[in-house]
Simulated assay, not measured.
Amino acid sequence: MKRNGLGFYLRIYGKILAQDLKSKMSYRADFIISTIGMIFTNISGFVSFWILFRSFPSINGWGYYEMLFLYGFSLVALTPVQCLFDNNWSLRQYVYSGDFIKYCFRPINLFFYYQSEVFDIKGLGQLAFGLGTLIYSWTKIGLGFTPLILLKMTVFLITASLVMAAMQNAAAATCFWIQNSFYILDLVTRFKDYAKYPITIFSPVFRFIFTFFLPIAFIAYYPSLVVLRPDEVPLLSWLSPLIAVVFFWLSYKLWMRGAMKYNGTGS
């Protein structure tokens, strides 16, 4: 098998994932409680929409089921970030303790090795709830289903996932230069809650910020329009896959730049 090829990394990831899942399953109570907690957190979001729309039939032209569609879309899109990039939350601890140095001496890609070490399995509970919400709202809106729509959904869900992963990677990487980087990562993560709302409900200033500075509009709003409102798709929706790939690549470069400059404790 070609070293550093896709097959090589998939094989390595399979072995790392198996070991990580074995260690997690040894603490089943913690896994079950965490999964239930995540499901109830998402249920609270579902209920908040229901309560809101009991008083308002629509918000700036967006109905209840369309808002639920955005909510479910964002949950499904965020699942890969939850499952595959959760180790970003521990990055600052590894950097400040000096333990990050152990990742620098492996003959594989540093970013891949670090991120693949943790798989947050409780994110699958979020995926299940997100899919349920998406399917429920899909049927209520009356959207059709064809192979082309399935292809669009797959492409634009991946697009949304890449955007959120890029935001998290970039925020986590600041720990290589900033001591209190936790607050940047936490802030970026909190902003993702706004992804479940259509950008049109915000003021022009926040629309600009959420599109070009903190691009949370590309987590659900722009990608979902391709399926949700196919007759009024803006150019940014069609460009979102390219924007997502570029943004993720830049975040990867930033992360690797910081990692390559790492010298151990106190860097």
Rank of each mutant, 00 (worst) to 15 (best):
T200L: 07
Y262C: 08
P215K: 09
L254A: 10
L185D: 05
K102Q: 15
T139V: 11
V47C: 04
F208D: 08
P147T: 02
G72R: 02
N263M: 15
L68K: 00
S74G: 02
V233I: 14
L250I: 13
L70P: 08
V233Q: 04
Y194V: 13
F182Q: 10
Y64W: 12
V155Y: 05
P147A: 07
F202E: 01
A217C: 07
L52Q: 04
K192H: 02
Y94R: 09
F210E: 07
V95S: 04
D120Y: 14
K122C: 07
I158C: 10
K261N: 15
M1R: 11
P57I: 07
I158Q: 01
G7A: 09
S97A: 05
M260I: 11
I121Y: 05
S224Y: 01
Y13R: 13
F247W: 08
L151R: 09
L17E: 03
F56P: 00
T41F: 09
G61E: 06
L21N: 03
L162G: 03
N4G: 03
S23P: 00
D231P: 02
L214A: 03
L10K: 06
A170G: 12
T146W: 11
G14K: 10
S237G: 04
W255S: 10
N180I: 05
F69Y: 13
L151N: 02
L214F: 10
I209A: 10
D231G: 09
G98P: 01
Q82D: 12
G142S: 01
